[in-house]
């Protein structure tokens, strides 16, 4: 719908109102009040209804995608102003129109839940500071860095988004202290720590390979062998020298089949004919597992987890 036709605003309908208009505010606030009423209404729900209520919400959300899948996708109208052929076509059009809206819902709800995560973080560290538990000083460091990043981050965004119609702040020579601080905290420290932590993996790979790649059993031996072949093929110098050797052999013997023994060829063959199918087999299994789990969650059959 509007996402595809970005320039043309959608026609007015029951569902929308002009931007920032008083009617829109009324509708929005009304909806929130209605939602809150539902919220408090639900606190009086009897115990035996609790599970069915949750299940209904889950089922309806899943139903959208299942129906979207089962109703034939409508063909795009050739020109504006076409009427749907029949109810199925109309439903198809409705589903594909509603898709971009529904697709946002999960992300928006998860975003609202983020507050809970931050609340967990704050409780733990404020409690540490209050009780002067071990390392409470570091908890203060955490809170201070959080507040700094939050403050400068928002100030920077507001300046760039709303106070800078000419786009001057795109150029770093026009930056104020706030922009610099935000950049320093994010780009100078946070991103660098990301990269540093990421690169630690290289050290761990070395020690893990050292411990694990032993000729103990068939399994660990094939694991090691295929890893070694791949690594050798990635060393350009080794691959080059190896290739030169094979070339000499081919010229010497006249047997072109030997070309297949070049390390890059061997590595590629290993990847396409052994790695790819092995992984595909795992993926099939995982896909079926996810499908089965999806059905159980959708129909409320899953115990223990969410709908119990």
């Amino acid at each position: 719908m509007i996402e595809l036709l970005a320039q043309a605003p959608p026609p007015p309908s029951f569902w929308n109102r002009p931007p920032y208009s008083p009617e829109l505010y009324v509708m929005v606030i009304g909806t929130i009040i209605l939602g809150l009423a539902l919220f408090f209404g639900l606190t009086y729900a009897p115990t035996r209804l609790k599970r069915p209520i949750v299940m209904t919400f889950t089922f309806l959300s899943g139903l959208f995608y299942v129906l979207l899948w089962l109703v034939p996708t409508p063909l795009k109208p050739k020109e504006p102003g076409e009427l749907p052929l029949n109810p199925v076509d109309a439903a198809g059009i409705w589903f594909s129109d509603a898709l971009p809206r529904v697709a946002d819902v999960a992300q928006i709800l998860s975003a609202f839940l983020l507050g809970l995560g931050i609340f967990s973080l704050l409780t733990i560290h404020i409690r540490k500071i209050n009780r002067k538990q071990t390392d409470w000083g570091f908890s203060i460091v955490l809170l201070v860095s959080m507040v700094l990043m939050l403050g400068f981050g928002y100030a920077d965004w507001i300046m760039k988004e709303f106070r800078d119609p000419l786009g001057l702040l795109q150029d770093s020579s026009n930056w104020t202290f706030v922009n610099q601080m935000s950049d320093l905290l994010f780009d100078g420290i946070l991103q660098q720590m990301d990269a540093a932590m990421f690169s630690l993996i290289a050290f761990y790979i070395l020690s893990a390979a050292y411990r694990a790649f032993r000729v103990r059993s068939v399994e660990s031996t094939v694991l090691m062998a295929s890893a070694l072949i791949l690594m050798l093929s990635l060393m350009g110098g080794v691959a080059y020298a190896w290739g030169q050797g094979i070339d000499a052999l081919v010229i010497g013997t006249g047997n072109e089949f030997l070309n297949n023994l070049k390390i890059t060829e061997v590595a590629n063959w290993l990847r396409t004919n052994m790695q790819a199918p092995a992984i595909r087999a795992i993926e099939f299994g995982v896909g079926l597992g996810a499908l089965a789990m999806g059905i159980r969650i959708w129909l409320g059959l899953e115990r223990g987890g969410v709908s119990a």
Binding site: L60, G62, Y65, L68, I295
Partner: peptide
């Protein structure tokens, strides 16, 4: 439940 329901349907 809504998040998981949407996810399940998509599967």
């Amino acid at each position: 439940g809504i998040i998981l329901g949407l996810w399940s349907g998509q599967q």
